[in-house]
Design a protein around this nucleic acid. Structure first.
Lengths: 198, 198
DNA sequence: GGTTGTCAATACGCCACCGTATGGTGACAA
DNA sequence: TTGTCACCATACGGTGGCGTATTGACAACC
């Protein structure tokens, strides 16, 4: 943090910083889920021993917390901040659907976190992120003229579909589609869940 | 199995059969997920030691497999077999949505299994169950006159919504609703995902 | 050139679980 | 009454993770 750190990126620099650990934790999380984010495996992957880890973090939980907060920030920027630029509400919803369908890594992590909601570090974060997203959908539908009640139900339905699709695509190999099939599927979803123009 | 076993149900009988272990495994699974189905905790709960367990089963995995096959059978009977009685295809779909929204335990287990798809015992089972269900939806939509492509996409969407709602209701406490709100939500879903009568 | 601060290795104790080996016990049958 | 078999207890070794304590290496700075 304090040093200038010539923009080497992340290649082997034989000394690690705490953000190196966070980065590696997110990588492992995306690949194998929350349970895989363990101290000793991480250390092995980074080519050191856990003696190093416990200098940077007091516990595994602390690392997880930091890494997840990092993800939350990146995720926010990746999708929602960009879509706010669009003015027309219907177009904004369509863009949200399409764009979300293309983002990968952030949603892979979200999906893994969904499976680990029993853990105390994960649960509040997911509550935050999820309600924020549903509320985003809610205001989207409201600005399309839907009643509060309908907009809420539709937002919940759309978000449930999002969660479900994540599972289907990432877990159920039988259900995977090729590219064009997937594109058509996303369009079908948008057409079904976004009310037609008046 | 061989003995007559006076229909005592399941109260303490101080000697256990393998189906007692399966039953207890399903209970624990419904309560705490796949990871919690471990030999020693199970034995503790049943008031014996694992010396007993390894007489009935060769391994933890074998128990899991048996228990899951039991669940698959029960689940099949619980919902789908009953709905087939309904003749009108639109009514059958509505009934499927409503009935599914009321079934609890079986879906709780499904939700837990969804989180454990990385495990070799779970994965093929879930592929089976899920494709079976999606195909059920598919034929439902087809018999409503939808094109093969549309029906497939709609079936996938409906099933994705099912999965997502499971997660939202069971994991995201923020999103829980009271009874009437939930009923209205289910109706909204059905109205949105089942095309209107011609 | 010694001191300090930063990162890392080693070694340890702890816990929870898996699976094995072996011996015990009670009910029921011969 | 005595076996036998079905079920269970006990004790053990192995694995994989967490966290602590102690010492080591190396660079920066004075």
């Amino acid at each position: 943090m304090s040093a200038v750190e010539p923009l080497s990126g992340k290649t082997d620099k034989s000394r690690l910083s705490s953000s190196d650990w966070e980065q590696a934790a997110l990588d492992l999380l995306a690949e194998q889920g929350v349970a895989a984010v363990a101290v000793e495996p991480l250390a092995r992957r980074l080519g050191v021993t856990k003696g190093s880890f416990y200098w940077h973090f007091p516990s595994r939980e602390a690392l997880l917390k930091s890494a997840l907060e990092l993800w939350e920030k990146q995720d926010q920027e990746a999708v929602f901040d960009q879509i706010d630029a669009i003015d027309d509400p219907r177009e904004r919803l369509y863009a949200l659907f399409r764009r979300t369908s293309r983002e990968i890594r952030s949603h892979v992590i979200y999906s893994h976190l969904l499976k680990a909601m029993d853990q105390p570090v994960v649960q509040p974060l997911m509550e935050r992120v999820s309600t924020r997203r549903v509320n985003y959908l809610l205001t989207g539908y409201r600005s399309l003229g839907m009643s509060r009640r309908d907009a809420m139900n539709r937002a919940r339905l759309a978000y449930a579909a999002y969660i479900g699709i994540l599972q289907m695509m990432l877990q159920l190999k039988t259900m995977r589609m090729n590219h064009e099939e997937y594109e058509a599927y996303v369009e079908h979803i948008a057409d079904t869940l976004i009310p037609a123009a008046p």
